[in-house]
Design a protein around this nucleic acid. Structure first.
Lengths: 182, 182
DNA sequence: GTCTATACCTGGATAGAC
DNA sequence: GTCTATCCAGGTATAGAC
């Protein structure tokens, strides 16, 4: 667990989530960190290893966060979830799903697999939160749990994309609308 | 308006919307069309020219479509709009906004500009449809027009992404939910 | 409008010294 | 764990013949 390894991952994640997986090179990492190309390859032999490591780390982080959120009310859980996107937005990043998903066909197999796992993990968690809220009489909506969960996660995901493209705070607009429809 | 030019654009659009702008090369175009690298460069001197041409064409197509839809009811307009995404989904493509938006920072300037124009054009059109529906007493929702419009367009945009990544028909789920919330 | 040929560069990746 | 040096493949792009 060297420090360099973490620095590489942090920077690579930022690059992936602003420029895309195919648009950054090892030089974009080595130069700012003032190390050499070969040092990056020491930690991550292939670019696909770096990509996979980042997705895996994100999955683990999400697992830890949701574990922490367990005691919270469904509303608070949803708030915390939305807050992840807000933090991304403040750094002008899209989420990793939004960054990698659109170029799915061009990704290495290991990354594809991780990405699919991650997507279903997130969707499943959100369904559980909505179910909990409904059971407790806190949420009220006419869609099914699955529909509502997908509506929310999709809205958040691409509000980050549209915020960058349209140069307006679409996340803000969308996240105000979410509680109104619950 | 040579035929080759159109063929190049069609194929490039498909590639952009499945693999991403940075993940395809001139060879991916020249080989299937059985022409040479240089022929592609004749029609589009730089890759950025090709990218821009595709966005511009999409904008024009959208303008023509919405013009045709003018006589339709708001519900039918929305249906027709959703249908664009359905067609994309059937070809395993994301929309061009979802394909290009996430790597905005790595795009050539001319493409960025076109993309921003396109995003606001689509959002504006959708607002007008929702306003029309509300005025006519056909739609009923508690969010503002802007919120509702962005909620719908973001849901559709990333349902295509999630459909590919999660290998489930998220578009179907989301598009069933949309009319329920109107 | 399409070809051949080629220039030029950048990218990912590895070998071997320290 | 980081370096120097280098390889090789592939990518965009252009010149000039047909």
């Amino acid at each position: 667990m060297s420090n360099t390894r973490t620095k590489i991952m942090n920077l690579a994640e930022k690059l992936i989530r602003t420029k895309g997986y195919h648009a950054f090179s090892y030089k974009d990492i080595s130069a700012p960190l003032q190390i050499k190309n070969a040092a990056v390859h020491y930690h991550f032999p292939a670019k696909a290893d770096l990509g996979e490591a980042i997705i895996s780390r994100t999955i683990r982080t999400f697992e830890l966060q949701t574990e922490e959120w367990k005691p919270l009310s469904p509303e608070k859980k949803l708030e915390a979830f939305i807050n992840i996107y807000r933090e991304s937005k403040e750094q002008n990043m899209v989420c990793f799903m939004g960054a990698l998903g659109p170029s799915y066909d061009s990704l290495p197999d290991n990354m594809k697999a991780e990405l699919t796992i991650a997507s279903n993990q997130i969707r499943l968690w959100l369904r559980e939160v909505l179910q909990e809220g409904k059971d407790k009489g806190l949420f009220d909506f006419s869609e099914t749990i699955e529909e509502k969960a997908d509506t929310i996660v999709t809205a958040l995901l691409s509000s980050l994309i549209l915020s960058i493209v349209s140069q307006e705070d679409v996340l803000q607009t969308v996240s105000k609308a979410i509680p109104k429809a619950l």
